[in-house]
Design a protein around this nucleic acid. Structure first.
Lengths: 348, 348
DNA sequence: AATATTTGGGCAAACGTTTCCGAAATTCAT
DNA sequence: ATGAATTTCGGAAACGTTTGCCCAAATATT
C-alpha cells in the first residue's frame, strides 16, 4: 500500500496539511506557486489520498453498487458494460452483487449497503422476491436507488425499463402473421414486472387476432431439465402449439433442445421467438428470431440517472420512468416460407 | 444513510465507545451482560458500523477488485460468478473494472487501486499490454495480486490458468484425426500468454503428425468485419484449410458467418473447433465443437488463493501456479462421418 | 494616512472506529 | 488480611482527510 500521506507531504514542504489538501484540490485560496510545489512533490512521490479517510470525512465513497440476479446472461453483462462506462467517466467505482434469483440474498445485500458504503444502488430484482419491504427499508435510508428492467413500479423510485408489453405484442403478432394458430408463452416463474408486461402483450395480441381464450402460459424456472420436461409435455399434448414465445433466452434454448429430441422441425412444425441478447442467436439451427433489449443503453441510462440523483439534480419526469425500445430481429425460426437460404439473412 | 453511530449507542447506554465497540465484536474483556445490552440496542436501532471509519482505522477495506478485459464474454462472466461466490462467503465486496482490452485503461485502473481501496486484485491482462511495468509498480505497493487466465509468467505472482497448450494440442489432434490435412489457427493479436500457449499446442500437434511447416496462423482482433475479411481471404486462397481452430469463441462465430456466406459446409468442407464457454454452442448450425475452460472454478480458485494471501497464509507451491484442466466437447462441427442425427448428440 | 478588503495559509476540530494503556473492582492464592 | 492476578471497563490517541475559523500580511479604498 502506498504509504505516503498528506501529512508527510506537508512536513516535507514545511506547510500545514490543510494547505497541502487545498493545493491539491486547486483551491483559490492557495497561491499558484504553492500549488506548483505541492503538486510537484505529490507527483514525485506518487501520492494518492487515502480513500477511506476521504470517504469518512466527506461522507462520499465514490462508489455505486449494481445488484443483479445473475451475470451469466448477456442482458445483464451488457448492462454492466454500460454502467461501468458511465461510472468510469465519472470517476466512480462499481461494486457488483449477485442475488442468484434468491430473495434472501437480495435482502442481505441491501441490508449490507445501508451503511454508507455506496452512494447509490441499481437493482434488478430477483424473481423470487414477493415482498418489497427490504427495498422500502432501504429507501428510508435515503441512499439513491433505481430499478432497471425488473422493477417495482409502485415504489417512488426511478425505473429504467424496456417496452416489454409492446415488444411482446409485436413478437406474438409476428408469430400470428407467420401462420401460427396456437401460441404458447414460456414465462418466468414469479411475479416480476417483466413477466407481467410480456404476458400482457402476448394476451393482447391474441385478443386482437380473435384468439382470446387460447392463452397457453407455461411457467419455467432455473432448472433446465425441469423446463425441458414441461416443454416436452406441452409439445406432446393434445393442445400442441405451433408457436412458442419464450420470455427469456434460456427457455428458447430449452425449446430447441426438446424440439430436436422430439424431431419437431423449426420453423416448419414449430416457430420460436424469444427475448434474447445473445449475438450468436444468428448461428443457431435454425437462426433464432429474437427480441433484443437495449441492454447497454439501459445500463448507461440507469447509471446516468443514478448519478443525477447522487448529484442532487432534478430529474425530468421522463427520467423517472424511462422506457427504451426493444426491437425484433426476424430470423428463420419464425419464417413462414420455405427454409430460406441462410446466407441471405446473414449478410452484414 | 444510516445515521446511528457507535458513539450514539454508547451515550444511550451510558458506556464508552470503546466498550460498545468491544461488545459488538464479542471481546472477551466485556461481560456477557454488557454484551447483551449493547447488542440488543444495536439490533433495535439497526446499527451498522461505518465502513469507512472502520477501513481507515484498521486499514482493511474488505474489498477486492477484479480487472477483466470485457464482461460480455461467457468465460469472464463465469469467472465473476465464481469470484463473487467466494467473496460473499468471506464477507468481502467485489469491485469490477473493465479494460476493454486497452492497455491505458488497465494502467489507469491499477494506478487507482494503489491507494488502499482494495485488499487485493485479480487481473486477466488485456491483449494490448506489451509492457508489464504498471503491474510491477503495483506489486511494489505490496497489495496482493494474482493473475488468472491471461497471465504474466515471469512475475513472481500467483497464476491460475488452464492447460492452454495441452487443450490446444488435443483440439488440433482431434481435427487431424477427423481427417483434416491443413489446419489454420485463428489467434488473438498481441502477445498474451494464452495465445502463445494455444499456438504452441497447435504447432506441437502438427509436428507430431508430421505436418510441421504447414502452420497457418491468422491474427484476428476485436473488429468482426476485419476478422471476416481475413477469414474470407483465407478460405478463398490457394492454401484453403479444411480445418479451423479458433483461439476464442468470437473467431469461431466469424468463421461460421463467412462459411455461410461462401457456402462452405461445416463439417463436410471445413471443420471448426474453438475455445468457448458458450452453453448455446450445442445449438449452432452445426453444433460447435468446443474446448471449454473451467471458468467458474478458475474464478473460485483465484479468489481462494487471493484470500489466502490476504490472510497471510502460506501458499502451497501448487497454488503459486495452478493449472485447471479444460476439456473438449466434440460436436458436429468436427465430425468426420456423415452428418449425424442431431438428437443423438444432444441427449442429456 | 488610516481603514477596509483581499490574499495566503495555519490551527484544530471534526468524520466514526479501533486499540493501547491503565484503572477500578473483584477474585484468588498465600 | 495482604498482595497478586483477573475481570471489566473508560480515556484518549490514532487512522488520513477535509474544512470552519482565524490571523497575518499585502493590497486596495477612502
Amino acid at each position: 500500500m502506498n504509504n505516503v500521506t498528506l501529512k508527510m507531504l506537508a512536513e516535507e514542504l514545511n506547510m500545514s496539511p490543510s494547505t497541502v489538501s487545498r493545493a491539491l484540490r486547486d483551491s483559490h485560496e492557495i497561491s499558484q506557486e504553492t500549488k506548483d510545489r505541492v503538486k510537484a512533490l505529490a507527483a514525485k512521490l506518487d501520492f494518492q489520498p487515502n480513500p477511506h479517510a476521504s470517504s469518512l470525512r466527506k461522507n462520499k465513497s465514490r462508489t455505486i453498487a449494481v445488484i443483479i440476479p445473475e451475470i451469466q446472461n448477456n442482458f445483464f453483462s451488457q448492462v454492466m458494460n454500460g454502467v461501468e462506462e458511465v461510472a468510469r467517466q465519472k470517476g466512480y467505482h462499481v461494486l457488483i452483487y449477485l442475488t442468484h434469483e434468491d430473495y434472501k440474498r437480495e435482502k442481505d445485500i441491501l441490508h449490507l449497503l445501508r451503511s454508507g458504503r455506496v452512494e447509490g444502488v441499481m437493482i434488478s430484482v430477483s424473481n423470487t422476491t414477493r415482498s418489497f419491504e427490504h427495498l422500502e427499508a432501504y429507501c428510508k435510508e435515503e441512499i439513491p436507488l433505481i430499478f432497471f428492467d425488473r422493477v417495482c413500479e409502485n415504489m417512488d423510485v426511478p425505473c429504467i425499463t424496456t417496452d416489454d408489453a409492446g415488444a411482446a405484442f409485436k413478437a406474438t403478432e409476428h408469430l400470428l402473421k407467420a401462420g401460427c394458430k396456437k401460441i404458447a408463452f414460456l414465462s418466468m416463474a414469479g411475479n416480476l414486472s417483466i413477466s407481467c408486461g410480456r404476458k400482457s402483450g402476448y394476451v393482447k395480441a391474441l385478443t386482437k387476432y380473435g384468439l382470446s381464450g387460447s392463452e397457453l402460459v407455461i411457467e419455467c424456472g432455473p432448472d433446465d431439465e425441469a423446463n425441458r420436461q414441461k416443454i416436452r409435455q406441452l409439445l406432446e399434448s393434445e393442445q400442441k402449439p405451433d408457436g412458442i414465445f419464450a420470455a427469456v433466452e434460456k427457455f428458447a434454448v430449452n425449446t430447441y433442445e426438446v424440439s430436436r429430441e422430439l424431431d419437431i422441425r423449426v420453423p416448419q412444425h414449430l416457430k420460436v421467438i424469444s427475448f434474447s441478447n445473445l449475438a450468436a442467436a444468428a448461428l443457431f439451427n435454425p437462426p433464432l428470431s429474437t427480441i433484443v433489449q437495449p441492454a447497454y443503453d439501459m445500463g448507461r441510462e440507469s447509471a446516468n440517472i443514478l448519478f443525477k440523483i447522487i448529484d442532487k439534480k432534478k430529474l425530468l419526469s421522463a427520467e423517472k420512468k424511462m422506457v427504451i425500445q426493444s426491437h425484433l430481429i426476424i430470423r428463420e425460426s419464425t419464417t413462414s416460407k420455405q427454409y430460406a437460404k441462410p446466407s441471405v439473412l446473414l449478410k452484414p
